[in-house]
Design a protein around this nucleic acid. Structure first.
Length: 490
RNA sequence: GCGCCUCUAGCUCAAUUGGCAGAGCAUCGGACUCUUAAUCCGCAGGUUCUGGGUUCAAGUCCCAGGGGGCGUACCA
């Protein structure tokens, strides 16, 4: 790296004092620009401000230096004449990227740009090495992800995406809090991984001498809390799945799960519509969001359609659970699905749906009524045998959320777990193991409840028009730069 | 895991058919009191990802490895 080649003595000599221990900005770039827009060209405002940020550009002009300072709100020009700027030489020697604090009078240059005259200044931190191209910025994606702190300064749209994501999360909390949902925290270390169909990361607790798993979903703990009388709960937190990476998958990602007693999946779909369209209006000003090279209209109500209806629309194939299993398997094979012996009719229908239909669904649609075979935690459909009251919202061909009226019968739940366990024995590493403790909780009574899981990262992608998850995760999972060395346990 | 693409100065990118490795910005030195990606003059900056091979000659072609991207598989 360049830091090796930059001996300390080459750094600007002054200001000679070490950086201050604290600094008190009383203004920011955006506010100053807004408040002094009406100032006449070439005049001073009489207002003195103190600001801090990084020096992003510098234009030397002999006995006058212009700088551009960027803070969290934007950029503002610094005006530094040799006559009045303390340690003028040193100011001109600052590295691009250095953090500086500046106090001075707000003024407007003769050319009409609101600026802060540098009446006093100090360097708060140094940027060692050279700064990325001031015009082209930083394009190398590896560097952008590994050294996100550079990306955030140099690529304004990147910074803006993360600000939007953060606002989105706090807005979700407000939305749920207003509806009397209680935010809780449940374990991330699970003795039995459950609540989703995924491979877990495994770890070990030394004192307990027990293997534990990083959670793949908080679902089963949150429903235990509903059993405990917390009638509306939610958790926003990281979950971990030991699976491949892609533009839509990061091994650790953020999930919102909520559980709502006395409500069913029709209630929950309304909640999702309100939440997502409301966020769009709040964060983008419109219910229409750009995604890829197309737009998605998020205005409710969203279409509801059963999985079978959607398959038929897409393929003209009228499928049904009652069909002969081998016939379904033949259709699936024709469509290019890799059919396994263990697949029943329900699993085959899901596979056919995912192969042919899901990616084609652009406008928001709630896909409802999933086969029981692939929904081990969902309650049987009240009218349609073999199906469950489950929905997923699909937007832009991607799954945004998954929810269902919860299975509350402990006997049935145990039977579903046992079926999962059989699949596990048959080689499906993602099938759920039996969680007897969860069954025990159900034996104490889970009231009629609906549950929902929303991928926060994917929601952020949707609302920022981003097509890769790595652009909405601050530090996406990457291959380690140096071979990992096992830390010695103490 | 598989397939395709890619890797050149700190950053962004060139380099014709295999024929002397270049530019802009940044850095460094100099000029300049109203610039806006300031401008002008100058200096310096390279294991062309790594290792092998073909060739009179390799950034360019071939093989192996590494990093990255995309697609695919996996991810109900």
């Amino acid at each position: 790296m360049t830091s090796d080649e930059q001996p300390v003595e080459s750094a600007p000599a002054a200001p000679s004092e070490p950086p201050p221990y604290r600094f008190d900005p009383d203004a920011d770039a955006a506010t100053i620009l807004a408040e002094h827009d009406g100032l006449e060209d070439g005049t001073e405002s009489g207002v003195t401000v103190t600001i801090a940020g990084r020096l992003m550009l510098r234009r030397g002009q002999g006995k006058l230096v212009f700088g551009v300072l960027q803070d969290g709100t934007g950029r503002i020009q610094l005006f530094a004449p040799a006559k009045t700027t303390p340690e003028f030489e040193a100011f001109g020697d600052l590295n691009l990227g250095d953090w500086i604090g500046v106090s001075g009078e707000v003024m407007k240059t003769r050319r009409g740009e609101v600026s802060v005259r540098v009446d006093s200044w100090s360097r708060l931190a140094e940027w060692q090495g050279t700064f990325p191209d001031k015009w082209h910025g930083l394009a190398d994606v590896d560097t952008r992800y590994r050294q996100r702190y550079i990306d955030l300064w140099v690529n304004e749209d990147s910074r803006q995406r993360f600000v939007t994501r953060s606002k989105m999360v706090s807005s979700i909390r407000r939305f749920l809090d207003e509806r009397s949902f209680l935010e809780v925290e449940t374990p991330m270390l699970h003795p039995i991984p459950g609540g989703a169909h995924a491979r877990p990361f495994t770890t070990h607790h030394n004192a307990l001498d027990a293997d534990l798993y990083l959670r793949i979903a908080p679902e089963l703990y949150l429903k235990r809390l509903v059993v405990g009388g917390l009638e509306r709960v939610y958790e926003i937190g990281r979950v971990f799945r030991n699976e491949g990476l892609s533009t839509r998958h990061n091994p650790e990602f953020t999930m919102l799960e909520l559980y709502w007693a006395y409500a069913d999946y029709t209630d929950c779909m309304v909640l999702v519509e309100e939440l997502v369209s409301g966020l769009a209006v709040e964060l983008t000003g419109s219910t229409t969001v750009a995604f890829g090279d197309r737009e998605i209209d998020l205005a409710p109500p969203w279409r509801r359609a059963t999985m079978l209806e959607l398959i038929e629309e897409q393929t003209q194939l009228a499928l049904d659970l009652a069909m002969d299993r081998d016939e379904l398997a033949a259709i699936a094979t024709d469509l290019g699905v890799e059919v396994k012996q263990s697949y029943g009719s329900g699993k085959l229908i899901l596979e056919i749906y995912e192969k042919t239909t899901e990616a084609e669904l652009w406008d928001p649609v709630f896909v409802i009524d999933y086969p029981k075979e692939v929904s081990p935690l969902s309650r049987d459909h009240r009218d349609k045998p073999g199906f469950t009251e489950r929905f997923e919202a699909i937007l832009g061909g991607r799954e945004l959320c998954n929810g269902f009226t919860e299975l509350i019968d402990p006997v049935e739940q145990l039977a579903r777990f046992e079926a999962q366990s059989a699949e596990r024995e048959a080689g499906d590493a993602e099938a759920m193991p039996i969680d007897h403790d969860y069954v025990r909780a159900l034996e104490h009574g889970l009231p009629p409840t609906v549950g929902l899981g929303i991928g926060i990262d994917r929601l952020a992608m949707l609302l920022t028009g981003t097509t890769t998850i790595r652009d909405v995760v601050l530090f996406p999972t990457l291959r380690p730069e140096t071979p990992a060395t096992d830390p010695e346990p103490a």
